[in-house]
């Protein structure tokens, strides 16, 4: 199924202030693959993920999502396929109540009201957030905000999921249910995180980014057990592997 393919070819990206955040990133993700993106702070993970939905356009190189090359003209269509969870949920939850926020995407997809309601409720219950429905986002805890941000994306039923630090503020139990949720998502997904155990659990493949380049790319078990590689990138062995 070509429409769930993600391909980066020699992607360079430079911020307006001159910071070169990506310096030639190439990889290809096929349908149904679940890929972790790890690396030190400032390595370029968030920058890379923002290319998936066209929030950023490559300075040079090419990003292909499904059958479409990412350009200013195609990014509207690409955004319908790719659901993105941002690093900071406050930026993502912009509507005045949780319900309105989760409904924002489905309404923009042009669904009818009954359908929208249904989607909102099912997305919220998948993240255990149904009780938060009528609250304003600013009254939620950090973890609840993350959960709602995920629900807001899930409610759009995207073909591809891109998540930046989805578990950053979650308590262990919510983190566990997020892992369960991610495992049920059948399509391609890209998860950037410093939580290497989560990556190990959810992703069969792992890409290490360092200074805007792909430093390593392979099965998670191999990469996340390579102590020298990890330590060179400010990372540590996942806890579950340290015990062995």
């Amino acid at each position: 199924m070509s429409h769930h393919i993600i391909e980066f070819k020699e992607v360079f990206f430079r911020y307006p202030d001159g910071t070169a955040a990506l310096r030639g990133v190439s990889f290809r993700i096929v349908h149904g693959e679940s890929v972790g993106v790890v690396g030190a702070n400032g390595a370029g993970k968030s920058t890379l993920l923002q290319h998936l939905n066209g929030c950023l356009l490559p300075t040079s190189g090419q990003v292909t999502i499904g059958d479409l090359n990412l350009t200013a003209a195609t990014r509207g269509e690409i955004r319908r396929k790719v659901g993105s969870v941002f690093q900071n949920p406050d930026d993502q939850l912009f509507m005045p109540t949780v319900f309105d926020d989760v409904a924002f995407g489905p309404l923009n997809l042009g669904l009818d009201k009954a359908h929208v309601r249904e989607r909102v409720e099912s997305a919220l219950s998948r993240v255990n957030g149904l009780a938060l429905k009528n609250k304003p986002p600013h009254h939620l805890s950090a973890g609840e905000k993350s959960a709602v941000a995920i629900a807001a994306v899930m409610a759009m039923e995207p073909d591809i999921l891109a998540m930046d630090e989805p578990a950053a503020n979650l308590d262990p139990r919510s983190r566990r249910s997020l892992i369960g949720l991610l495992k049920t998502f059948q399509h391609s997904k890209l998860v950037a995180s410093h939580d290497l155990d989560l990556i190990l659990d959810v992703c069969e493949r792992c890409i290490v980014i360092g200074e805007g380049r792909v430093v390593a790319d392979g099965p998670s078990e191999d990469i996340l057990s390579n102590r020298t590689l990890l330590e060179a990138n400010n990372l540590e062995l996942p806890l579950s592997l340290q015990r062995r």
């Binding site: 939905n53 319908r80 993105s84 912009f94 409904a103 759009m156």
Partner: peptide, 22 residues
């Protein structure tokens, strides 16, 4: 900066100029 990120987040969820509401 935040306003720009919010705008991007809105675009990612299909925002096309007006805010729909139930």
């Amino acid at each position: 900066d935040r306003a720009e990120r919010i705008y991007q987040a809105m675009l990612c969820r299909g925002f096309a100029g007006d805010i729909p509401r139930l």
